[in-house]
């Protein structure tokens, strides 16, 4: 049983804008009958203002697929094409008050249908996954390309194969492409971290700092420590001082100071802020 929000239920039981638009200005399709969900989005667009004046959908799929389609039509009506093009899968999920992780691919399908419709209007046409330029099919079961996976990882900050599957379906069946997905995740994260941060980046809010510290510890630090049977937990963050407790083999380790200063500290300075400090809390 999925834990759907009231918003999802509302859009599923009372879907808005169901059906076709006769002589639409744009049509966008995503998904397929084989995969278990598909969405066809119809748009009416004002030629002068480039505003979307009407949107309708047809969906084959589960509750969250229908709800994502329905809410998407509400989101795009009244927007210009340029504004609509900025809608991400995250926006669709947020508009529904969130989706179960395993269902995030429904919001991705909404975004893809919208992009396809906009491309259709602009006369760009949309390529089938296997024809997309420079793209390679990674997941053969669900025909998902490396481009699509890369984008999902980048835009949603995905860290695991499971998350990639939740968002794109890739790797959800035979599992033979898992190693490729892992490689893409690693590559995208390297690209993100390699990007030089603009100098004089404005100071982080406390909330954002906490979030980044936690993410960096989970992604960059703890897996390394665990390799040696150790671990750490985040105890507190005061200003720019991060307080952690070393666990397992790390606790009482001869080189604990070194671990903190040169490994944990370095990672936090790299991924969070250049002037952040680490302090160990002992029992």
């Amino acid at each position: 049983m999925w834990d759907y929000t009231d918003k999802v239920k509302d859009h599923f039981f009372h879907p808005r804008n169901v059906g076709e638009i006769p002589q639409p200005d744009a049509v966008g399709e995503a998904g397929s009958l084989v995969c278990g969900d598909a969405l066809k989005l119809f748009l009416k667009i004002d030629q002068k203002t480039k505003k979307i004046t009407a949107a309708k959908f047809q969906t084959f799929g589960c509750g969250s697929a229908i709800a994502s389609s329905s809410v998407l039509t509400e989101m795009v009506i009244g927007k210009t094409l340029d504004e609509a093009a900025c809608i991400t899968n995250r926006d669709i999920a947020d508009a529904l008050g969130g989706l179960p992780q395993e269902k995030m691919h429904c919001s991705v399908m909404g975004m893809e249908a919208l992009e396809a419709a906009i491309a259709n209007y602009r006369g760009q046409g949309t390529a089938l996954p296997e024809e997309e330029e420079g793209a390679e099919i990674v997941c053969k079961c669900f025909a998902v390309t490396d481009k699509k996976i890369e984008r999902a990882v980048r835009e949603n900050n995905l860290n695991s194969i499971e998350e990639v599957t939740n968002y794109t379906k890739a790797g959800g069946a035979c599992a033979s492409c898992h190693w490729k997905i892992e490689e893409i995740i690693r590559r995208v994260h390297q690209e993100i971290s390699a990007k030089p941060k603009p100098p004089g980046t404005k100071s982080l809010t406390n909330l954002k700092r906490m979030q980044l510290v936690q993410e960096t510890l989970d992604r960059e630090v703890r897996p390394e420590l665990r390799k040696d049977g150790g671990d750490l937990e985040l105890v507190d963050i005061e200003g720019k001082v991060v307080k952690v407790r070393l666990l397992g083999m790390c606790a009482g380790c001869q080189v604990a100071d070194f671990t903190l200063r040169d490994m944990v500290g370095k990672k936090l300075r790299e991924f969070v802020e250049p002037d952040i400090e680490v302090q160990e809390i002992k029992e």
């Binding site: 599923f12 278990g36 969900d37 799929g61 589960c62 509750g63 269902k103 599957t165 959800g172 069946a173």
Partner: peptide, 28 residues
């Protein structure tokens, strides 16, 4: 799709199950 059918049945108090991917939790 089966999950959509089950949700609508469930709303009316009818309990059944489906072989669809969306109800399995796996995608398959």
């Amino acid at each position: 799709e089966g999950e959509a059918i089950l949700l609508k049945l469930s709303e009316q108090g009818i309990c059944a199950s489906s072989g669809s991917a969306c109800t399995s939790g796996s995608l398959e």
